[in-house]
Design a protein around this nucleic acid. Structure first.
Lengths: 151, 151
DNA sequence: CCTAAGTGGTTGCATGCGCAACTATAGCTG
DNA sequence: CAGCTATAGTTGCGCATGCAACCACTTAGG
């Protein structure tokens, strides 16, 4: 029986495998950079960043988990570590006794401020720099189509 | 002291965060699809695929590791599992007694043939479909620029 | 040759993650 | 308001992965 579906052509392969390779290489590079410069893993950085951008420097665990693309349990442990290191605190929610907020501490904000330049520079230097404005526009809208489709 | 580096604008943010989200969602979806349909994790699929495409259905461990974006130790364990399941065998190398080949077995090739259509259909349906030929071309060349830069 | 440095692969160990089960609370329905 | 279902967060557990140490072998240099 023949294969019913043809292989990927060179263009498709480059676009698809490239995505995988770029993600792997870029995550690794940016994580290493952040770890070396500030002792902060990339995932921790992202938590602090989302908190800093949120109203009052605080977010519900659930929302935070989906923002940083982690499972709820994964986020619980990550927040444990960040709390242990003093970068944030847990704070119970007045309106929903089940819930908890993660709240950025001054130390956390300080850490983030120190790390942000490093990280943004890395993203620009290793990723954004390689695309024109039109290309970035296309990437953004393309990602949106893919994500909508995946629900 | 002001931040020396400006935040990402909306376009940059969409291009960058989109890459992360798309990779996460897509890996998860394709992995689940493969696992559900053939009991084969995505990483295992990739090993079998690279072997099938290689001369004689065999590759050196080292080369295989870099192809599937895994550390050497990670590949050792993965190959352990695939060998246990009968999809491949280890085979010592005649020219270099240190080295080992991973060799696809008939069962492995069969498994791959069964899984390939599922996977390719998934990649097309959830990723390639959303981009025009020109856009795919752009993606491929863009990824190349990024990867060259990261060496 | 013989030694020293390098390379291929595996193993011990620690880590970070997801899933499923659990607890506590909220909110809906009769 | 009683009970049922859904949701928020945590915990136990298992798994895949990376790093560093390790062995076996190869290769280069005296």
């Amino acid at each position: 029986m023949d294969t019913t579906i043809s292989r990927l052509d060179a263009r498709e392969l480059a676009a698809w495998r490239g995505l995988l390779k770029v993600h792997a290489a870029l995550s690794k590079a940016l994580d290493a950079q952040l770890e070396a410069g500030h002792g902060l893993p990339l995932t921790s950085y992202e938590v602090l960043m989302y908190l800093a951008d949120a109203e009052g420097g605080r977010m519900r665990m659930h929302d935070l988990a989906s923002s940083v693309l982690l499972s709820r349990s994964g986020l619980t442990r990550l927040v444990d570590r960040l709390e242990r290191d003093g970068y944030l605190e847990r704070c119970s929610c007045a309106h929903d006794a089940r819930g908890a907020f993660a709240v950025l501490t001054p130390a956390g904000r300080e850490k983030l401020d120190a790390a942000r330049d490093t990280h943004l520079a890395g993203v620009r230097e290793h990723f954004l720099r390689h695309f024109s404005e039109e290309e970035l526009e296309m990437l953004g809208t393309g990602w949106q189509r893919v994500l909508n489709d995946l629900t």
